[in-house]
Simulated scan of single mutants.
Amino acid sequence: MIDSGIQISVVIPLFNEEESLPELSAWIERVMLANNFTYEILFIDDGSKDQSWAVISELSRKNPCIRGMRFVRNYGKTAALQTGFQAVKGQVVITMDADLQDSPDEIPGLYKMITDERYDLVSGWKKKRFDPITKTIPTKLFNAATRGISGVTLHDFNCGLKAYRKEVVQNITIYGEMHRYIPVIAKWNGFAKIGEKVVQHQARKYGHTKFGLERFIFGFLDLLSIAFVNKFGRRPMHFFGSLGTLMFFFGSLIAFWLISSKIYKIYVSHEPFRNVTENPMFFLALVAITVGSQLFLAGFIGELFVKQSVNKTGDYLISDKAGETNKI
């Protein structure tokens, strides 16, 4: 059901893209009018230092379908997308970058895959890229690692051109640098019908890229965080408790064996007394016992936090309800 009557919301995060904004907005408008779409464009200015906000303000004055939000400082692309997701009104949400490397001509195809083919999410795949090799090779490695860890079989997780059902973007939370993993987060939240569409990639027309190679390092760490939280976020004792118990058990076993063998040598074999602490294995056993105990306690404390969180928020996603009007 579309209360607002808007079919498509286009969310565009940006940082210092004043040159490309007029051309991008005009291009989107042409596509929307040619296909008779009702739409809105949300520009999220991530603390730009140039005249991007002035351009957005002028564009919104000329076209009532254009809205803008401006951060007081640069928070990052993930924060911009999360803010846009909470403000959209359209049935289908399209995200794209502001640098004109994503083509608005792809919007009708993406929209059709969501509405007609009933995908929850469709990710663009820039099969033919116009980026330097220093960017394409790390991207391929990054995508391969993400596929292996997440089980989501997309070719291009980092493509900014994606389409979502509104319910998807308003029922997930992203932070840090996790915008690359929205398909992974969506799948783990129950939105499992994820598609892919080959899209046109264009060379950057204005300015220069705002991202460096460090994004791949931070991105991989974020992927590990997502994987861990998804698997053990609701049951931390299963991870910390299991690991702690194993370490405590093996540490205790080693310590018991060292002490028992020392007693045997003294009282049975009548060997000269030597302090058990002279054996470095004894200290390894003590470390294992200590760390194992701490891990177990960490799991226990984690369980207490999870219990409190569930009691306060109850943030489980519900797809349907029945019998709301029934009285007990």
Score class of each variant (00 low, 15 high):
C65L: 01
G148F: 11
P272T: 08
K205D: 12
K262G: 05
M32S: 08
K197R: 15
D116Y: 15
E303T: 10
K128G: 06
E324L: 03
L141I: 09
I8Q: 01
S4Q: 04
M1P: 10
A79K: 02
I301T: 00
F296I: 14
T78I: 08
N171C: 03
T277Y: 12
L110S: 05
S252R: 13
I114F: 12
Q101G: 04
K126A: 06
F37V: 01
R70I: 04
G90L: 03
I28R: 09
K197A: 10
V169R: 11
L14K: 01
I2H: 08
Q170C: 06
I66V: 06
I149N: 02
N63R: 09
L224A: 08
T313W: 09
G207S: 05
M1K: 06
N74H: 15
V291H: 05
W188L: 02
K231G: 00
V276Q: 06
S48E: 04
I174Y: 03
E177C: 08
S260Y: 12
L297I: 10
P108T: 15
G219T: 09
I114E: 14
H238P: 00
V72S: 13
Y175F: 07
V88Q: 04
K135N: 13
I114R: 02
S9T: 13
K128A: 06
V184N: 00
S48L: 05
D116H: 15
D116Q: 11
S319N: 12
V310H: 03
R215L: 15
E214S: 13
S269C: 00
Q294V: 04
F250M: 05
R67F: 04
V93F: 04
A54N: 11
L297A: 06
T245Q: 08
K321V: 15
P280N: 03
S20I: 04
H155F: 05
N74K: 14
L154Q: 02
A227W: 14
D105S: 11
A227D: 13
F15N: 01
T134I: 09
P22G: 04
V268Q: 00
R235T: 01
W188Y: 07
K265E: 13
D45T: 00
V31T: 14
C65Y: 15
G212E: 10
M96G: 02
V31N: 12
I289P: 02
K193V: 01
I2E: 09
Q51W: 09
G5N: 12
A186S: 10
P104W: 05
T277C: 08
L224N: 04
I133R: 10
L100M: 14
D45V: 00
N36G: 01
V11S: 06
V11E: 12
F239Y: 14
F142Q: 08
E278L: 14
F232R: 09
K231T: 07
V287R: 03
V198K: 09
Q82D: 06
F248A: 12
H155G: 07
S252C: 15
G190T: 04
I182W: 00
D46Y: 15
T245Y: 04
V310I: 10
S25I: 12
P132H: 07
A26M: 07
Y267G: 00
F191A: 03
A322Q: 11
C159L: 11
T325D: 13
D156C: 09
A255M: 14
R70M: 07
I44P: 06
E29N: 00
F211L: 13
E23A: 11
A144Y: 08
I66W: 05
A322M: 01
L24C: 08
K135Y: 15
V310P: 03
D102T: 09
Q7S: 09
D131C: 06
E271P: 01
